[in-house]
Nucleic acid binder design. Structure first.
Lengths: 236, 236
DNA sequence: ACCAAAACTGACCAAACGGTCAACTTGTTT
DNA sequence: AAACAAGTTGACCGTTTGGTCAGTTTTGGT
């Protein structure tokens, strides 16, 4: 998706904010966004300063303004990128798939995001925590639509007797919380476990626990072993 | 806990930071802390300004500095108060009590905190999210000790065959996440559910869902109906 | 009524902040 | 190699920030 960059098109001469442009532009912007992800995660929007962001990106401050205009626009660009990641994870949840295959795939996808993109998770969490001032419209429209459609899928599973009659939305809320806590509250979890970093062992234990609670807790009946459905990992 | 205030003791003449003092002092400080809880929750530590905090408390800025010295000391005082609340909630988890009584009591206590003190929950979440720079030592010592002792209790339950063999610590992580998400991610949940505020109905649904996942998911066996143990609510 | 301690306040300050700009260098096209 | 756009940079600016302070009012014990 997104318009292809047409080399013949006249580009605007003042700072453009589309994600198009030349080699240098794209690589610089990605570089800045990567640094911003870490800094915003650690300090929050208000706590992060442009000087910090610039230092983390290894560029002069004016450079960030050249590409993104303002601190807020940089932040929004970062948020939008993170959002796309988050939305795609739910692609596992489709009507034809048995919950005993779909739910583990979803849980794995969400835990993988927590493991591989902890800063992104924290930026998103921070945004929602403070009332989602930059995401309000999105949450009420796009996300709500998506969740509604997933809720219909889960209700279908319930109707077919594949699992207990549970509230699909609250199931998702708790599933999100359980998986994202390993990114967002990583500091607390590390402290309690007494480990320097969350590694494969911790995420394996987390996966087992979430799987158990969700599958057993929702009474997901073992499916008729159509092996094909089972072990495919979720796209992303 | 905490030293009793001795009226004969000489008080320091420069701004004291103990939670002792006259009527006015205590009521003013509590008033400021209540306002700070809301503002820090909404804006984070870096995003909140002393002017905002003062306006929310209905006092001139200099007044906050008179009582708390600096923004950071005010924030720490707030955090410490919140911490005490959080720790007490786990008092339900004791060896003699059957998990079918203890776990529901704990879940209710945690959900009650999310419902009644959402700002406090958000301040705590925000702090941990950003690496807990003001709580590091606490997390690694006090909290860790407490969790270790609760883990022993749960292992006792498992040994007695009262529930499945699960990792006690990860059970707690997910239980915390599932209950706190209704405060910390309230914005997202409201948007998805399309309600103006989370009320009794939403918290009832949350309670049912968390209960189901934890009790059924952990295979908590129904206890021998010693009615006395059952319905007592957790202290706090 | 008296008075010292406590509480309160508006005005003020240095530092840090987000953002701008003109000058300069590098890249790209023809 | 000329010509123009894209990218880079240090210096600068108006505003906001956390914090201070001298001076005033209120409180509470005697």
């Amino acid at each position: 998706m997104g318009n292809l960059y047409k080399t013949t098109a006249k580009r605007r001469s003042v700072v453009p904010q589309e994600v198009v442009g030349g080699r240098i532009r794209q690589s610089s912007m990605q570089h800045i966004l990567a640094a911003a992800e870490r800094i915003f995660a650690q300090a929050g929007f208000g706590g992060a300063t442009m000087a910090e962001l610039a230092a983390a990106a290894g560029l002069p401050k004016a450079n960030l303004h050249y590409y993104f205009g303002t601190k807020e626009k940089l932040y929004r660009a970062l948020l939008e990128g993170i959002l796309a990641l988050w939305l795609d994870a739910a692609d596992c949840i489709v009507p034809e798939r048995h919950p005993q295959a779909a739910l583990p795939a979803y849980i794995r996808a969400k835990l993988a995001l927590s493991r591989d993109r902890p800063y992104a998770s924290k930026v998103f969490a921070n945004e929602v925590l403070h009332g989602a001032p930059h995401l309000r419209s999105y949450l009420g429209l796009e996300l709500r639509r998506r969740v509604d459609s997933k809720a219909v899928v889960i209700e279908g599973w319930i109707a077919r007797g594949w699992m207990d009659d549970v509230d699909p939305r609250h199931l998702l809320f708790i599933l999100w919380a359980a998986t994202q806590t390993y990114a967002d509250f990583e500091t607390q979890i590390r402290a309690v476990l007494g480990v320097a970093a969350l590694g494969a062992a911790e995420f394996a234990a987390a996966e087992e626990m979430v799987m158990r609670l969700v599958l057993k807790g929702c009474g997901v009946r073992p499916m008729a072993s159509e092996a094909a459905q089972g072990e495919r990992i979720c796209p992303s």
